[in-house]
Design a protein around this nucleic acid. Sequence first.
RNA 1: GCGGGGGUAGCCAAGCUUGGCCAACGGCGCAGGACUUAAGAUUCUGUCCUUAGUGGUUCAAGGGUUCGAAUCCCUUCCCCCGCACCA
Length: 958
Amino acid sequence: MSIRSSEIEAKWQERWYAARINEVEKDDRPKFMLIFAYPGVTGYLHVGHMRGFTYVDAIARFKRLEGYNVMFPVGTHATGNGAISLAARIARRDQKTIDYLCGNTCPVDMLESLKDPVRVVEFFNDVYVNQYWKRFGFMCDWRRFTSTVKPDYQKFIQWQFRKLMERGMLIQKPYYAPACVSHGPVAIDASETDIQCGGAAETVEYTLLKFKCGDMYLVAATLRPETVFGQTNFWVNPDADYVKVRVGQETWVVSEDAHFKLTYQLDDIEKISPVKGSELIGLRCLAPMVHREILTLPADFVDPDVGTGLVTSVPSDSPDDWISLRAVQEDDATLDRFGLDKAAVKAIRPVAIIEMKGWSDLPAVEVTERMGITAPGDPKLEEAKKLVYKDGFHTGKMNATAGEYAGLPVMEAKERMKQAMVASGEAAVMYDLSEQVTCRCGERVVVKKVNDQWFIDYANAEATAASKEQAKRMEIFPAEYYQNIHGVLDWFRERACVRQGNWIGTKFPFDEKWIIEAISDSTLYPIYYTISKYANEGSIRAEQMGEEFFDLVILDKGDASKVSASTGIDAELLRKIRDDVHYWYPLDLNLGGKEHLTVHFPAFLMNHVALLPREMWPRGIFVNWWVMGKGGKISKSKGGAQPIPGAAEEYGVDALRLYYAHIASPHADVDWDNEAVEGYTSRTEKMERTLLDLMSLDGEGSEVDGWMVSRMASRVVRVKEMMRTYDLRSMANEVYFEAFNDLRWYQRRGGCHAPTIRRVLDLLLPLMMPITPHTAEELWEASGHNDLLSARLLPELQEGEIDVSKERAEDYLRGMMDDANEILKVTGIRPAKMTLFTAAPWKHEVVSMAVFLHEKGELKVPALTKMVMSNETVRGRGKEASDFARKTAEDMMKRSPAEAKKLVQRFDELSFLRASREFLEKEYGCSIEVHEAGEPGIADPQNKARQAAPWRPAILVE
RNA sequence: GCGGGGGUAGCCAAGCUUGGCCAACGGCGCAGGACUUAAGAUUCUGUCCUUAGUGGUUCAAGGGUUCGAAUCCCUUCCCCCGCACCA
């Protein structure tokens, strides 16, 4: 099978691309432009990535069917260090990397050239285009392919940044970024591309509290500056190494490690002399903010590599402090050793400072008692700390001791107190990493202050407001994101947009030591697809694509002949490019994975809004969720996922496409499951086989033909409706499951009329084309067409093809058969004869009355009974009439009036059932009789006929 | 914490915006029948309980609104994801 399907796939792809139906130019038709957010070039992709890509192709193909001129371009994003680190790993002959490459589709003799990052990008660009996108039959205009490493693309990005600067969207300010001490900037992220370990580390902000002590300051680091009102003493690790350093005019004491880190963050810092921790014990120092003198005491828990290696003690709210304080108070030996004033130490008591719901006023004391912590170093302290900090931060309020801060929530007090202390010179700020991070080169990673960092000002009020406005007008899927994106835009702040270090990317036009980072050069780019073709074919060259070129073709600013004169580009060509840009733009749909929710999509929107005129702002966003591996994300770096070409071979491309479209809502994660995919392989095959079977039929017409055509025509209408919201799952369900069941039913009913079948195929195959294009083309050809289905339009429906009454009649038959099956199941009878009774005419009267009352909202059993009994003919039926009235009323009250109304539609049940007799006899293998209830002379020993109701015949099984 | 998503029958998974055609699409699995020498494929029937086609109890749990709720409101429990320089 797979061999055959691969052949078919190749055959049709060749024909599509040879006929160039994928290549699009501006014309008179309405246009539709859509993209998927281009993937980063980081190595081989896995089957999960094809999900979103496939959605875009299916949508693009459907839009073509609807008559749109559809541009679906693709590109790749190579900015960053992915290719560099991959090349480096190849260069140092890393076996894992080599296995990974060769285990995919990389030929061994390619390895040598892949030591060059540029070749890595080129190599994968080829893999993505040829082994993934073309392999899946995508209807992309390949001539427009672009990549962030291409010089013409980079000219575009530089132009974008010039425009950002013009709009005041670029700002410069200091920034604290992780950096290797020998390499410079590195990225800390879970995939650990730059680093050896510490991918989970976060940058944390410490407040440095300065304790005046003689002519120097002991500098403690804290994450909770709001607790200064509870300070009772100061902790020093007696065994740690400290140093005196000069910071500006002041002398600070911090740990050796802290001094090392601070040299990356303070401009004017100089080491003076080392100090032993033990020398610092027993001193009196002046606590900031509260201006109390407190004593420095020894504590082992103080880690010289965390913060400054000095800690202020707040035993009321810090379990560590409380436990250590108690320990030292009870430890006379230690007190003696350091010559401490025992009475003074033992007199120290915690000071309550924060009120929090569900806690006493000394939460640290409470939590340690509750958890049974008695000694320093207890591993449970970590949890205790978290418990108290979490509740304290979110629910706590400063109590009366906090002076002007009394009554403030901790959350607020924290920030205000920190700022007040910094302003008064009692505190400073220091950044550190929450855990040790080591660079690839083995050196330590620290937080480094960058003085002249550039940011894109996404907090810009005007751009934010305009973006939110635009978001309201856009089609955004899922609906939850439509609601949520406003919040995301509000929360979007300045973003560092350039970086230094060993990175692939575009040089920052205002200062070439900077490289524009990865998120920032992938926001406005969809518009570049309207231009890239000209650079790719060589009509324009990168060096001609300066500011005035883009100003003209994108912003329609300036004069074509002048620009022509200065760039050397033909004026006509310039006008043509400008017209192209304005024809294709705005972008109708940008589809990307959920990872883009708070990163790419808001930046994408804001850049468009900030830089382009309103009529070029984007119109749609579609977010798809992921395909997950068993027990987590399918990981590129960690492997375990099947290579895409292998999966295509094994399951068939159309089956995979159908799998993505149908397995679940696009807005939910899916677990990859071989068996599920196999199910779609067989579904595709079944569909194909069934249609081929039908094509071979050539018999008499019958009453089901009208039904069949009506069904299929209705489905065309429904699919169109579903695709208005890109609801591919419903569409797939309709085409590959519902319509498939129709076809089966048609055959079961003996349908075999060639003209009907031809019409059905003409209606159905176009609906299959977006999701399973290869199979659809193959069947299109088999059914006698010699054009390309992929270049077709949706068929026009003919007058009267949709006939609801025919569909209802078949439903009626199914309903009757369900009832019969139920009876056969319950009774276990093997039928020798079945008699069907349609309802007596007077019952239709009753149903009409019931519907009449229902529509007025007055349907109740007594009301209907009364009305029924006022009718001459019906009244004559006596108890039977009142029973039926009750049953009808009860039954109908469960339905909506609109639904109930269908019951009064007239339908000649008797003739229809009689016409279906032959079919039913075959189905049940017994003779079938059809009568109207009350018809004289019919044997009905069990009096079943009286159960007949309109649209529900009575059944007697014998 | 902030922000977001979710809990549906053996499993996967629709439905929830716009309450009534919902015992709840579809698929998988399972059981039985047909076809077949057999297997597979295909197809039909069934798959909460009960039952001559009826009735009962279900959509995390508990309340409420309504003639009527998986769908609306409130409360509780549980799960997942994002929080930025990482594509």
